[in-house]
Simulated scan of single mutants.
Amino acid sequence: MTTIESKSIINQPIEVVYKFLADCNNHEKLMPENVYNWSSTQDEARFTIQNMAKLALKVKERKENEEVLIVPSEKAPFDLTLLWRLKPVDTSTSEVIFLINADLNMMMKMVASGPLKKLTDFQTAKLKEELEQ
């Protein structure tokens, strides 16, 4: 398993950050421009990544104010999990860690690691931007 991680400190209470991340409808705001055909509910999201793949993801587990675990709801190009972990820094600030765990063979790791790292960094930056407006 390859683990790709990004962290961010967000100037919002943990309850606000968790509420945003627990709803898949909000995740569209965290996606880069090459994601289109977005459709979602609170528990599931479907979208296309330009020149790559169509993905269908669902929330597998929510631990209130701690984490949101997202997994494929249909066959994905490779096995993966997306995990948002939350920790309070103080009453008005939260640490967010976004982890992508992907089952990549050596060739896929060479091709996909860079784009996946860019995606995690992009999403944590967009989360901070969205919630600190």
Rank of each mutant, 00 (worst) to 15 (best):
V89I: 14
T41R: 09
K118Y: 11
V59D: 12
L57N: 13
Q50I: 01
P77H: 01
S40Q: 06
T91N: 14
Q42E: 15
L86F: 11
Q123M: 15
S8I: 15
P88S: 12
P88E: 14
E95W: 09
K58R: 15
F47R: 00
I97N: 15
N25L: 10
D79I: 00
E64Y: 11
A125G: 03
E44G: 11
E5F: 00
K29S: 05
D103Q: 15
V35I: 13
M110V: 13
S92T: 12
E67V: 00
K7Y: 14
R46M: 07
D79R: 02
L69H: 05
D43W: 09
D43A: 09
V96N: 11
G114N: 07
Q123Y: 06
S92D: 10
L21I: 10
K118I: 05
L83Y: 04
L80D: 01
N101V: 06
R85H: 01
R85I: 00
E44R: 14
Y18C: 04
F47N: 01
Q42V: 11
K7P: 07
E130N: 11
E95N: 10
I97Y: 15
T124Q: 06
W38K: 12
Q50S: 10
V96A: 13
F78Y: 15
E5P: 04
E15S: 12
K54H: 12
K118N: 13
V16H: 13
K19C: 03
D90C: 11
K118R: 15
E44S: 15
P32L: 06
F78V: 14
T81C: 00
Q12S: 12
S73D: 15
S39Y: 01
V111C: 00
Y18D: 04
P32T: 08
E129D: 14
Q123E: 15
S40K: 04
P77R: 06
N11S: 13
D43Q: 12
N25Y: 02
E67R: 11
A45K: 10
M110G: 10
L116H: 01
N101I: 03
V71R: 03
E33F: 03
K87W: 02
V96S: 13
S92W: 04
D90L: 09
K29A: 09
T41K: 11
Q50F: 00
M106F: 12
M106T: 08
L80A: 06
E129W: 11
S113A: 07
P77N: 07
T2R: 13
L69S: 07
M108Y: 08
K54W: 03
D79T: 02
P72K: 07
P88M: 02
N105R: 05
Q42Y: 11
A76Q: 06
I70M: 03
A22Y: 12
E74F: 02
A102P: 14
M110W: 05
Q12C: 06
V111A: 09
N105W: 09
E130Q: 13
P115A: 04
E132T: 14
K75D: 10
L127I: 11
N34L: 07
I100T: 14
I70Y: 05
E28A: 05
K126M: 12
E64G: 03
P72W: 05
S113M: 03
Q123W: 03
Q12W: 04
E15C: 01
N51T: 07
S92V: 10
